[in-house]
């Protein structure tokens, strides 16, 4: 024991270095795997306030582009109102209460923290669990998909946007419903990549890529981006394709959190399905 103590005293510089690095790595490994859940909660209440002030200043300078984005979205929404359709077939009756059950609910939120330059970026919004935001809810913006909620505190939530190494969004091509996935390989915040797209599928430039709706997170058909360039990888006969993201992450200011009201039911069904399969084996 005495020898060990003497050894540590002698090499105190190196021992302290090792100790501090071990603490840092423990922090990295214990909190980074599922991004920062606990750690973030500790830091959020304090950090959130600072960012809110910061965002309120930045927001002023973005007013013009935000207005434009909202106006465009208004016009799109207005054009999808029933009043803007002409009834062609008078035999169609509407039974909103029985035939249509509301599946998705949207919560408007304001972006108060954002980053682009890192490999793993995060967005913070000013709505939290008190407003109904929960983990694993999808987040969309006026221009398309933004990301997935990873942690919530009472008044704030942190979002893992498409610009993150752990992001993988179930997607499909709008024109022929072919299934694929969107990931981000880092670097350019305007572009993402498509994986698992087999070579038999016909694709061309500017094809729209939208959410598949299979993941319980995003509704079907939300725009992710358009194909920018692609080539067929002859080794495995899959495409290497880049898409131009429709969301401009740098100028994001208002987003919608998507709440899937039937999520629990779907999850239960999946669980039952797993049980049956494991029983059969």
């Amino acid at each position: 024991m005495n020898n060990i103590l003497r050894f540590i005293a002698r090499y105190h510089f190196f021992s302290l270095f090792l100790l501090l690095e071990i603490i840092s790595f423990l922090l990295i490994f214990s909190f980074n795997y599922y991004p920062q859940a606990v750690y973030f909660k500790l830091a959020t209440s304090f950090n959130g306030k600072v960012r809110e002030i910061n965002a309120s200043i930045a927001n002023f300078y973005k007013l013009k582009s935000t207005n434009r984005q909202l106006a465009i979205e208004n016009s799109i929404l207005r054009s999808s109102l029933p009043s803007s359709f002409l009834a062609v077939d008078t035999n169609v009756f509407w039974h909103h209460d029985t035939l249509y059950r509301q599946r998705y609910k949207y919560i408007t939120a304001h972006v108060i923290g954002n980053s682009l330059g890192k490999r793993n970026n995060y967005i913070m919004i000013d709505k939290g669990s008190r407003e109904g935001v929960g983990i694993d809810m999808g987040v969309i913006g006026p221009q398309g998909v933004v990301g997935i909620v990873v942690t919530v505190s009472d008044h704030f939530a942190s979002i893992m946007p498409v610009l993150h190494s752990a992001t993988m969004i179930s997607a499909k091509l709008k024109k022929n419903n072919e299934l694929t996935s969107v990931i981000w390989k880092g670097g350019n915040p305007f572009k993402a990549s498509l994986i698992n797209l087999p070579g038999q599928v016909q694709i061309s430039k500017e094809d729209s890529v939208v959410t598949s709706g299979y993941s319980l997170i995003f509704p079907e058909g939300i725009l992710i981006g358009t194909i920018d360039h692609f080539h067929l990888n002859t080794d495995d006969n899959y495409y290497d394709a880049d898409i131009l993201l429709s969301t401009r992450f740098g100028s994001l200011s208002y987003v919608y959190v998507v709440q899937n009201l039937l999520r629990d039911e779907q999850l239960q069904l999946l669980k039952k399905q797993d049980e049956i399969i494991s029983e059969e084996n």
Binding site: L26, L27, F29, N32
Partner: peptide
Amino acid sequence: DIFQSSPGINAAASVLVAF
């Protein structure tokens, strides 16, 4: 790390720099 919500990353890197 607290402000960038990236636990341990900046700490590990700057401790190595100090070393």
